[in-house]
Amino acid sequence: MVILHCMKKEKWNEVKRNPEFGEKNLQIEGFIHCSSVEYFWRVAPNFTNIKDDLVLLCIDTDKLKAEIRWEDGDNCGREYPHIYGLINTNSVIKVLPYNKDIRGNWIKNEEFDTVQNK
């Protein structure tokens, strides 16, 4: 299964050569926020006002070494994948641009056209 993690392109370029990354997220939140592809449109508004270039990391959960817990932290009736540990870089199987319109709203990547939003 593939899950998504959104981050600044500049940060990805800094960490992609490391064997693992995510220390800051773990220090602040205790886990690393991710999303299923089906639910990403629901979390995309969190990135609307970020002016930096963003990327979507496509993480293969079978390759990920850290524990993943599917949790409904906001009691919204949907569970999102939270990674409790560092992300091993070799679990990132694809890096896609975070496409957005002039208002900063996410434009679904064509790679996800066959995935229905939930």
Rank of each mutant, 00 (worst) to 15 (best):
H5L: 00
H5Y: 00
K8T: 15
K9Q: 08
E10Y: 05
E10F: 04
K11C: 02
N13G: 05
K16Q: 14
N18L: 08
P19A: 15
E20I: 04
E20D: 12
F21R: 13
F21S: 10
F21W: 15
G22P: 03
E23Y: 15
K24N: 12
N25D: 14
L26D: 11
L26F: 02
Q27I: 13
I28D: 11
E29N: 12
G30C: 06
G30W: 04
G30E: 07
C34V: 06
S36V: 02
E38P: 11
F40H: 05
F40A: 02
R42V: 03
A44S: 15
N46H: 15
T48L: 10
N49S: 15
N49A: 14
I50Y: 03
D52T: 04
D52G: 08
D53A: 11
D53P: 07
L54I: 00
L56S: 07
L56F: 03
L57G: 02
L57E: 01
C58I: 13
C58A: 11
C58V: 15
I59V: 13
T61K: 07
T61C: 06
K63S: 06
L64T: 03
K65R: 13
E67A: 13
E67L: 14
E67T: 13
I68Y: 12
R69T: 08
W70F: 13
E71G: 06
G73W: 01
G73F: 02
D74A: 10
C76Y: 00
R78A: 03
R78E: 05
P81A: 03
P81K: 01
Y84Q: 10
G85A: 08
I87T: 03
I87P: 01
N88M: 09
N90I: 02
N90P: 02
V92A: 05
V95T: 04
P97F: 13
N99I: 10
K100D: 01
D101Q: 12
I102F: 12
I102L: 12
R103W: 07
G104R: 06
G104N: 09
I107L: 15
I107Y: 07
K108L: 00
N109P: 13
E110Q: 04
E110G: 01
E110S: 05
E111Q: 11
F112I: 09
V115A: 09
V115L: 07
